[in-house]
Design a binder for these strands. Sequence first.
DNA 1: ACCTGAACACCGTTCAAGT
DNA 2: ACCTGAACACCGTTCAAGT
Lengths: 189, 189
Amino acid sequence: MATGSSERPLRADAARNRRAVIAAARDAFGRHGVTTSLEDVARAAGVGPGTLYRHFPSRDELVLAVMDDGLTELHRLGVELLDEPDLLGAAHRWLDAYIEQSGRYEGLARTLASPPAVADEHSICWRAIEVGMALIRRAAEAGALRVDADADDVRHLCAAIAWVDGQLPPDPDRRARLVQMVLDGIRPR
Amino acid sequence: MATGSSERPLRADAARNRRAVIAAARDAFGRHGVTTSLEDVARAAGVGPGTLYRHFPSRDELVLAVMDDGLTELHRLGVELLDEPDLLGAAHRWLDAYIEQSGRYEGLARTLASPPAVADEHSICWRAIEVGMALIRRAAEAGALRVDADADDVRHLCAAIAWVDGQLPPDPDRRARLVQMVLDGIRPR
DNA sequence: ACCTGAACACCGTTCAAGT
DNA sequence: ACCTGAACACCGTTCAAGT
């Protein structure tokens, strides 16, 4: 729900506008991807463009606000998977969810591939990714994955899968096949 | 040199303009990626915007014209590798070259990931990819790769590598590491 | 403290007029 | 046959004026 950290409460009308912009953006992202016109988003939210820019100085900040629910869920899943005894399976499930979130809107994979560029380290975005990386490192240390597999490399490859899958004509099985190839590439031999 | 097929010769001034647009586009793509302003490209080429659009009705056609040399080279390499006895090594070298070409300009990977959307099947783009896919299929049939590895899946994953590598802070070894992961994923066990 | 909306700059794309 | 460049539509972004 909250965007991450320590903003003091907004005035009632400001909070309402903020929610309206996020809702309008979510709708527009679904239709036209994250590069949709922000002017249209503002219009659909019933605010002026200046109001949108006041709340979200960059497009990425709006994107992350729209993704707040999904990233919270991804974080929750990661924490839950820390209790999973099947270490390889846990990493696999988290990566699937990461790809799922990255593929929700056209153009989104770019934002989630390199959050350093857009989100600070205490954001839900970073914390979700941190727990996922911990799952991968843990699996590697226990021998369920190759020890020389770098967790960020694995994540980047999965972000890349989300991207390419969104570029190509739909194929419901492609994503699973590509993830399997990646995981086969880091299983101990 | 030629863009592919059966255009009759252009008038001298038209041919000159076409070359100037391609040269200006190559320069601008290098600076700002393939989404650079076409108006700027036209201005740098010394032509009006209408002339650019006459020669290249869509941005992708201009992108492919700029890439003509690189795609010809990729095709030539693929044909040469058909004589290579190390079937896995041949596939690896072609995929490296494909990623190299796909990463030449920011935003280019998208065009080369799904040429069906932008290039006809007799284009140099398609022919270069066809020979690469033949190298992969041949390696799989000979047992140097897993037989269930789909050649297009492998290519898509490599296009994805080119994309993600361009999104992230520079790391000179990342591309090779990610390609190695993919190839490890399709080696017979 | 926050909002509005006009204003500016920039770009993609088309097309009537020209050679 | 080809080129020019004005013209239109659209969008990102800022900011002075308002409440």
